[in-house]
Design a binder for these strands. Structure first.
Lengths: 352, 352
DNA sequence: CTGAAAGCGCTTACAG
DNA sequence: CTGAAAGCGCTTACAG
């Protein structure tokens, strides 16, 4: 059974399409009697306005596009959840595409979404993305665009991020505060700004505490599918290279958990021998033993804020109001758990 | 800058809109000269056909809807990935909604998607869904609908599933084959058919091996957010209630991992004292120690198949071909790892 | 080879 | 209070 149209209602009632349309929208210049007739029949026929026709007329589809590097990923799926929940509240639908960390795919997907004429685009960049022409093109066409987490500083649009550098600084400072003297870092890949910033935060904290920076203490991870194994491998390498390390700041929780597993297997005590701080607050991190001290990365909140900002820009554009790009920096908290030492306990001991 | 239209091209070239349209579509009855002119200008203006107009005319949007109980979930996010990857290949976009395991939300979202006039709908049911009127309504309106994983047997549409009962049977049989005599089961919630079937498979395997079924050996889990903690709690309870258990078949890997953690903490050896089999093959399961014997639940493949089937039905509907509903049962494998005993090793020993 | 006309389903300014 | 007309941007059967 095909969905009913205004035309059908009009014909059955022997009135014009315009009147039917106005009756359904409760225009004041339609008689009560006509309105009642129309509404009743519309209900009987289960009339729903044709979204395609509305889109064409209103030049908007109440649909946005989301491009994300990876879906099977705790942080990113939390962001998606935040975006969708907020979108649903405002009556928007979300088309999701996955770039697989590929610049080429990302470029194609931007085009797809532009051709689809979504009302706006939300994106977290692929690691491979170093050229921003496709993003600037979106902005040039006056299409609202908001970036989150993995952003390009040079693109002039709104951004929702955390302060990776500051968070990494705090993480490292916490290791120093709890007595670590020789602190290693398992860093993320070379490209996204985030792992660069985390590395820089680590380095800065060392400097500010007069601890010499030693590049041989920095190990690289892909932080992709094999994060856990990378953590184990790096833990092994680290022990071979340096037997004096007493603290590690690790780019991602999953890598940290791999490292912890390996250390435990080798009989190294955490936090007594080596203290560890992770990054992201994965759901397993609070639950393993020892539980992992880490930086809480607020994915759900980031998603919510990203959609809110996009929605604001879509609305302003529609109402010919000026669009002010925002850079929103979400707060990150250091969650102190068992993989680092408890300072208060230590202090108390000293005071005995 | 607003996107270009056929009208603009026509005006600039002083020809009719129809001719422009036909030139762009390479109709044979347009002169080469006109085609060249049109194509050149179209390229200059970066002309892209207006998707809203096409949707209205073609009565299709090359967009499907997906309703899923939970996004932040390893299995479901794998399914999503499979769906999106396959959809992209066929030129379809995917709108994702999350039902949060709520029947009410699910119902609303079905309506949303119907009003949006997506070309088809993919759904995995909320645990709370026991009434299927909203799903039958979709089918009554001739909209292709494919269910996966959490399905309703009574709804007459295509389904992509695994054979939960058989997989559970194999898991339990494996425990029996490796010498377990007293086998417990941590089962999932009462509602979705899947956990019922897994329970039934467990029970059937016991029967077929003349092991008496003991209801006090069956423990319930929500298998939601706190799966890990549930595993720990159930492990504790089990030890209090029964000190003779030597094997457990557990509804979900995450619960199993929680249980393993707890057992290890209590000094119970796995698999020597208690053997454990999980279900789903979560990415951590192969990587923890001892690694978890489990049933591989092919999420990505399920997503791919679900979209393929939906696409087939969409295409057939469009071409007025008959639609044959399929129930596709994907293969599940038992992955033998360290949390159960190695039979071959045992056999070898016996043969010495 | 080109173009006017009708139509997809809706809305709204305008006429009566 | 009701309806004819124009328009959103496109396609295609038909006329010339």
């Amino acid at each position: 059974m095909k969905p009913a149209t205004l035309k059908q209602i009009a014909e059955q009632l022997n009135i014009s399409i315009s009147t039917v349309s106005k009756a359904l929208k409760d225009y004041p210049d339609v008689s009560k009697k006509t309105k009642d007739l129309v509404n009743e029949l519309a209900k009987d026929l289960n009339y729903k306005p044709n979204a395609f026709a509305l889109n064409l007329r209103n030049k908007e589809s109440k649909t946005i596009g989301l491009i994300i590097p990876e879906i099977v990923h705790h942080f990113f799926s939390s962001v998606i959840k935040g975006i969708i929940s907020q979108a649903e509240e405002k009556g928007y639908l979300v088309i999701i595409l996955q770039s697989n960390e590929s610049y080429e795919l990302e470029k194609k997907q931007i085009e797809l979404l532009m051709n689809q004429r979504v009302d706006g685009i939300l994106i977290s960049l692929a690691n491979g993305t170093a050229d921003y022409a496709h993003l600037n093109e979106v902005l040039a066409q006056d299409k609202p665009l908001v970036m989150f987490d993995k952003i390009a500083k040079l693109v002039r649009c709104s951004k929702i991020v955390i302060d990776d550098r500051k968070a990494a600084y705090l993480a490292t400072q916490h290791l120093i505060d709890t007595g670590c003297k020789r602190i290693a870092h398992f860093r993320g890949p070379l490209l996204p700004q985030n792992s660069i910033d985390r590395f820089l935060g680590y380095k800065k904290a060392l400097e500010d505490n007069n601890i010499p920076y030693d590049p041989s203490l920095v190990y690289l991870c892909e932080c992709g599918e094999h994060s856990f194994e990378e953590g184990k491998a790096n833990a092994q390498k680290l022990l071979q290279d340096h037997n004096d390390v007493d603290g590690i700041f690790i780019n991602t929780d999953l890598v940290a958990i791999g490292a912890i597993n390996e250390f435990k297997k080798m009989g190294i005590k955490i936090p007594e021998d080596i203290s560890i701080v992770g990054f992201s607050n994965w759901h397993m991190s609070s639950v393993i033993s020892p539980s992992l001290t880490t930086i809480d990365q607020p994915g759900f909140l980031m998603g919510k804020n990203a959609f809110k900002q996009l929605h604001l820009e879509i609305t302003n554009l529609k109402n010919n109001l000026p669009i002010v790009h925002q850079e929103i920096i979400l707060q990150t908290d250091l969650l102190k758990r068992e993989s680092t030492k408890d300072i208060t306990a230590k202090k108390n001991k000293l005071h005995l």
